[in-house]
Amino acid sequence: MEKATGHSILKTTNLSIGYTSKKVKTIIASNINIELKKGELVGLIGANGIGKSTLLRTLSNVQNALNGTIKINGKDITTHNPIALAKVMSLVLTEQITSKNLSVFELVALGRQPYTNWLGKLCRKDIEIVNKSLQQTNIANLKYKKCFELSDGQLQKVMIARALAQDTNLIILDEPTTHLDMYHKAYILKLLQKLAQETQKTIVFSSHEVELALQLCSKLIVISKKEVVSDTPNNLIEAGVFDNLFPKDLIAFDKKTQSFKVKK
């Protein structure tokens, strides 16, 4: 019961997602009802092409919902102006940043833009928050490095630090573990878990790392062809959601080890 009293950060009601092109609506998923609370680490799981990115893009207001509402902190997402939205939600995207000539500090400091003046001048508080974000993501030693000098794993941490510096209740990450080796995949997701607990931010990420997500997340959103469900990992396993996640000809979910096994 103690979870029900938690503060609702993100709430969708009868949300439909998809594309509108030439007046033809292509619905990818509908009837999505999710509620995310403070301090939760939420994994978004689903097969390739099922609509994970579309859902994240819709939640982050990059594309419009076809139907239904999304509320952030109890306020409809479409009524936020760009600056107000930037103060409640930060993003880590799959796309590369345009300029890698920025130093790590400069890049993370760009996360302070919603709060700075017309010139983007950093005040003492901004610099403190940037330094704290660097420490929380364990990259304080990279502060003066240029982004082109970093490995993929380091760059991903920098992007997470930038999202932290934006000081929002909600952080959304689109596949933060792609291009990383197994160790760094676990490292990044473990870092997200720590950050959600320490900072009480709500962190949502999409990932193909079902097994890691099952171990680390407090809640999962699973998209399958039939429906979009969200619950704790254990409840989802009990409900047999993972048996229907992928086509059944090659792999099967093993409840005991909470992992997928290749059929022999």
């Binding site: 930060s90 760009l110 919603p114």
Partner: peptide, 8 residues
């Protein structure tokens, strides 16, 4: 997209 997300 990032620029938008920081309020531009």
């Amino acid at each position: 997209n990032y620029a938008k997300s920081i309020g531009l």
